[in-house]
Design a protein around this nucleic acid. Structure first.
Lengths: 275, 275
DNA sequence: CCAATAGTGTCTGTGAGACAGTATAAG
DNA sequence: CTTATACTGTCTCACAGACACTATTGG
């Protein structure tokens, strides 16, 4: 090996192409909560989690659905900037909550070449979304998420197509909370994005109980009933009213506004307040 | 753009070198707990957290300290396998607890070329370590970790060299627990590894309270006093005996063994038991 | 006996789970 | 008046914080 006297000298002689390189992508799991149809005038509309998927127009995995994502430009941008750029392109929105999820790096995860992907979780209030969404992208509602014998089954629909896949969840180390996910059944989702989706949903489920992350999916003003429903759909279980109100009491602030017209006692509108 | 009839056809024509590529590394924050000297025969030896650093022999950052790490071979290995390979090389140990920490990707973090690094946290019981540690690697004890006005100061020593750096911690989003770390003072640690170290220590601090991760740093048999000291050094605060014993009660199993010879009541030896 | 750690009993306050009860709009 | 949701009061139980107390060794 040659020796260099200074760092400058060394850097001038350095040629990265001498080494094997690879490509990276940032993939984004964009999650929101939608209102579904209501059964009668008095019932409140049911809430559902939804995620944004994109139909692949080219090989590989042509015509399958995948998460919005794009290749990192190594010369100019960070992975988070790359993620923001992709989100802007797909949804025409900036200022979306973003958090790094995990880096997925199986050797054969992309058939083209070695591609390591850093996944980001993004949260948005669906009311912020205009119709300027990219035509090859589509919101899918999560209509079923069920865990049985460590096998998790997920069903999504965008009212045209229904997607269903299942993943086996195994504890990676007996001392921690990390799981290994393995695809059991999947014919509609490209790459390893089925696993990214599930990891993201689990992360959201965890973080909702010890952070204020949920307010990134809420409009500025909301009722406590709505907020509770969002918690319930994310946690996938019913919560008791008084307990819920105690928990979020010091995260929200009551306003003078009320919401009426629902065939029952009007509810106060609240807004987020930092603890 | 050309069109292809099948995925195979597409893949055959695909040339990754047409696109800008980059390099990746896996860097490992290996953490352990050491026994320090005892003041007199009766006192128990004080515990300290220690991390493994490597002295850089080449440019860039020649002669500075950094985390053990290595370039990913894109053709053969995952990042975790790369991390294991590096750990084996530096410590001659396999079967070390590893967990992906975070992917660091600032554009200019490596002066050579674009290098994205996925950091792993590794935990080990120091008694497992032989003297087969790589000569350019060295254990540094964390002798000070102090937070004041969101500036965290860290001092490490390996009894020859003392390293000191400080980092500013800012809440990234008001709704979550994610922080942005920014170097305030650092002249001994290469790359952005000062920030990796701090993120890792914070992660360990968090995870110790809701997982059994700490047992990866313990020998097979240990006293509750020792275990409590490890908790205390990681959490950086004193714990009350009865509260501590209640918390770990169903994580440990008492054995018939006792530890004597310490100038006070002998203590029972325990071992880890999964909940 | 002393010093130091090992280990336990128990009081108290906080806070979640549970359930029952009151309030109020629209049809 | 009915229906459905909004919102509150309060009991109970689990559990963490706090402190006091007993146990046991080597010197």
């Amino acid at each position: 090996m040659q020796k260099y006297k200074t760092e400058e000298e060394f850097l001038q002689a350095y040629n990265p192409k001498e080494f094997d390189q690879l490509s990276m992508t940032a993939d984004i799991l964009l999650i929101s909560v939608s209102d579904q149809e209501q059964a009668n005038y008095r019932k409140t509309s049911k809430k559902m989690m939804s995620i944004l998927l994109v139909k692949r127009e080219d090989y590989p995995y042509k015509d399958k659905w995948c998460l919005p994502g794009g290749f990192l430009d190594p010369n100019t941008e960070t992975l988070e900037e790359c993620a923001k750029r992709v989100l802007k392109k797909e949804t025409n929105l900036s200022n979306i909550f973003l958090e790094q999820l995990y880096t997925f790096d199986a050797v054969k995860r992309d058939p083209r070449t070695r591609v390591v992907s850093t996944a980001y979780m993004a949260l948005v209030d669906k009311k912020r979304l205009t119709d300027k969404i990219n035509p090859n992208a589509s919101w899918f509602d999560i209509i079923l998420i069920e865990e049985k014998n460590n096998i998790i089954e997920l069903t999504l629909t965008n009212n045209e197509t229904t997607i269903n896949f299942s993943i086996k969840k195994t504890l990676k180390e007996k001392t921690t909370d990390r799981y290994t996910f393995k695809t059991q059944k999947n014919k509609d989702i490209a790459f390893d994005h089925d696993i990214v989706i599930l990891s993201g949903l689990e992360r959201l489920k965890n973080k909702i109980s010890y952070t204020d992350i949920v307010f990134n999916m809420m409009p500025k003003y909301f009722t406590l009933g709505e907020l509770q429903q969002v918690y319930e759909v994310i946690l996938n279980k019913k919560l008791l009213d008084p307990a819920f109100r105690r928990i979020i009491a010091n995260k929200v602030e009551k306003t003078d506004l009320v919401q009426t017209g629902a065939g029952h006692r009007p509810s106060a509108l609240f807004k987020y307040k930092m603890k």
